[in-house]
Amino acid sequence: MSALLSTRALSKHFDGLVAVSDVDLDLTVGEVRALIGPNGAGKTTLVGMICGRIAPSSGTVAFDGRDITALPAHKRIGLGMAYTFQITSVFARLSVRENVALAARRRLAGGHVDSAVHEALAQVGLEERAGEEAGNLSYGHQRLLEIAMGLAQAPRLLILDEPTQGLSEGEIARFTGLIGGLRGQTTVLLIEHNMRVVWDVADRVTVLNFGEVLAEGTPQEIHENRAVQAAYLGTEAG
């Protein structure tokens, strides 16, 4: 199995503060990887460096065997990455359909856009809302729209930053099914706080703590890892 994404010694310092330190991360093609860790562990900074939103202080990012450390964000997306924002960042004054169409038009044209939009909206269950202004959707629906925008790009690597935050139980179940359906075709990197979702969908889990990789393994291994329990699950279990 080949690595789709590899980071080597990826680090980020903000004014002397270490946010991410020496992270080596390898994602194989088709896997669903969860990235977990306490708040402030550097998860969003790490994926920010992977997709080009944040310039690393040192280290490299390689995508599909090619060093992309110097590429600007839009070119990385062009290579087949998609990133959905943690803080909902849809185009509030545009229609739901147009939001997804913008994502699809990057690779498609004409009638293909419409069918891709329809498909992505159906996958997240928003097809009824296609004509509405995105800003009028509920918070949970905006999160789903974010995911639909990611899906419409038909990415090789889909990066989801806390996608289930604010979703209802039913929507979370649907989301879990959705990711399950992508398994094998799309590589997924998922930042997630909801442990049930992690155990359900992830092939492997990487735990970040204080900007460093604390542990990595199958959900089962992570579940049983004492260091992780101490750093993270302990507080979670309360």
Binding site: C51, H74, Y83, F85, F91, M149, Q153
Partner: peptide, 11 residues
């Protein structure tokens, strides 16, 4: 509407 988001759609 949101330049940052457009960039992250690959434009």
């Amino acid at each position: 509407e949101n330049e940052d988001r457009v960039q992250m759609l690959g434009y």
